[in-house]
Design a protein around this nucleic acid. Sequence first.
RNA 1: GGGCCUGUAGCUCAAUGGUUAGAGCAGGGCGCUCAUAACGCCUUGGUUGGGGGUUCGAGUCCCUCCGGGCCUACCA
Length: 572
Amino acid sequence: MARHLITSAIPYINGIKHLGNLVGSQLPADLFARYQRARGHEVMFICATDEHGTPAELAAAKAGKPVDVFCAEMHAVQADIADRFGLSFDKFGRSSSPQNHALTQHFAGKLAEKGLIAEVSERQMYSHADGRFLPDRYIEGTCPNCGYDRARGDQCENCTKQLDPTDLIEPRSAISGSTDLEVRETKHLYLRQSALKDRLAAWIDSKTDWPILTTSIAKKWLNDGEGLQDRGITRDLDWGVPVRKGTEPWPEMEGKVFYVWFDAPIEYIAATKELTDERGEPDAAWRRWWRLDEGAGDVTYTQFMGKDNVPFHTLSFPATIMGSGEPWKLVDYIKSFNYLNYDGGQFSTSQGRGVFMDQALDILPADYWRWWLLSHAPEGSDAEFTWENFQATVNKDLADVLGNFVSRITKFCRSKFGESVPTGGEWGEAEQGLLDALTTRIRAYEGFMAAMEVRKAATELRAIWVLGNEYLQSAAPWATFKTDPDRAAMQVRLGLNLIRLYAVLSAPFIPFAADAMLAAMRSGDWSWPDSVAAALTALAPGHAFGVPEVLFVKITDEQREDWQSRFKGVRD
RNA sequence: GGGCCUGUAGCUCAAUGGUUAGAGCAGGGCGCUCAUAACGCCUUGGUUGGGGGUUCGAGUCCCUCCGGGCCUACCA
C-alpha cells in the first residue's frame, strides 16, 4: 500500500469560486485522491481557505464585517459548497488557524537562524484616509507614458508599461479615491531566495517528468534577468500571522504580519495538524506525512494548481522548506492547469462573469459539472466552456451512454425475471470477448489515472461505458429470451454486474451517480476490479436489486437558453 | 519589450520524427425495439494557420510571418 499526500491550491477567501478555479486545482485533485483511495492506498487530501492579505480585508470591509468574522463565514460557505461538489478533502482547513500561525512563525525562525532572512527598509505608499499601506496595484493615477487616467501603480493597463507608484501623476487610493498619500519608510523581511537559487535550479532540473507548463515557469523565474530575486515576506497589515522569530518576538517588526504567500503553502502542513488535532491524535500523526525523519519517507506528494500559482509552489515554498534546514517533505509532482474560459472570454471573479460554484449547484447536480469539467480539463492549453458543448456532452455521455444503459438493463430484467439477479446460463465467446475488451480498457484507464492524464482517463472511461451498450446490442437478450431464457438470464446477469463495475470505475469522476448505481444494485462492494472476471460475477444469482430513478435527466434546449442569458451578465 | 504555451475535420480534442493524420460530437445511411426518441453498425468530412528549410521520411525539428493565450516578481 502506497501513501499519497495530495494538496489542492487553496482558494482565496474573498468570494465564491467560479468553475475555472474549480477545474484548475480542487476538482482534479479530488479525482486523483478518490482514485488512489479506490486502489486501496492511504491518502491524505488537504485543502483550505487562504484568508490573509489586502483583498480579504477589503472584502470584509465591503461586507461591513470584522475580517475574522467575515473569513469564518466565508470559510463555512466554501466548505459547504465543496462538500456538495463531492470534494473529498480529508481536511479543509484555514490559513488563519493557530496551527498555521505557529508553523509559519517556526519556519521564519529557522530561516532566520540559517541567515536566509534579510531585513530591508523600504519606502511604500501610505494612505491616511484608508489608514493603511497600499500595495502598488491599489494605487491609481495618470500614466506618465500614455496619459491613461486609470493606470495602476504596478503597471498601466492601457500601454502595458511597468510603473512604480511614484511615477503616477496625481496618485490616489484605488480603495477610497483619496489623494492624501504619503511615502513612508517601513521595514520588512525578505526571504533570500537568491541564496538558494542553485539548489532550487538543481531540484527543478531533476524533475524531468513534470509538465512543461510547470518547469518552464519555474525556469523563467530562476533565470530571468539577474536570476531569482529575494521576496518580501511581510506586510503592514492587521490581519495575518504576526511576525515572530519562532516563539520569540522579532525586534522592530511589531505590528506586522507575514505575507499571505509565505503562510499560505505552509497551511498545507498546518491543515494536516488541524485534522489530527481535532481527532485528538498526537503530533506524530501529522508529522508522519510531512517529516522525512518521522515516517514520511514513503510518502508521494502531489500538488494540483492553476498556472498562476506555479512560481510559489516551485520556488518560494520549496525555498522555505529547503532553507529551514529541517527534513520536511518536498513535493514530488506538480500537476498544473491552464485556464478555463467562459463563452469567448475569461471567467472573472471581480467582474462576476461566468458560472460560480454555488450557482452551478443551484441548477444541476454536481456530477454534471464534474464530468464536463474533468473531461475538458485545460491540460494542454486553455479550454473553453460553452453552454452548447456542455449540454451536448452531458446529454450524450451521461444520459444516453451511461444512464440509459443502467435503465435498459434494469428495466428489462425487472419485466422478464423480476428484481433479482437471474439464474442460469453459461458465458460464451461474446462474454469472453467483452471481458478481454474491458480488461484492456480498464488497464489503460488505470494508467491514465495514475499519470493524472485527466482528459484521456475520461475518454477511456466513456469507452468502457460504450462497451456495455455494444455487448447488449449484439447479445440482444430481448431476442434470446424468446428461444433460450437461460442464455438471456446469463446476459442480463452480466449486464447487472456491469452496472456495479461501472459504479466502482466511475466514482472518482461522478461519485454521486456511482453511489446511486451501487445502491440500486444493493451492493456495498467498492473493491477495485483487479480481476475483471471476478468483478463481473460479484452479484450472484438471486441477489436482489432495484431499478433506480433516472440517473441523469437531460438538459433541454429551453434550459440551456435560459442559463445562457442568465449567466451572460454580471453577478450581483 | 522579454519569456513560455498554442493553432490539426463544422465543434471539442488525439497522434515516442516512421504505413493511407485518428476519436467523440454534429451531418448522411442502415439496423434494433430492452431503454431517458435511447442503443448498435456503416459513412461523408483534412493543402495539420501561411511561407521557407533540415531529413530517406515532418502535424512533430529549425527559420520566418500571421492569429490566440498566459506570465513578467507589491493582487492572490
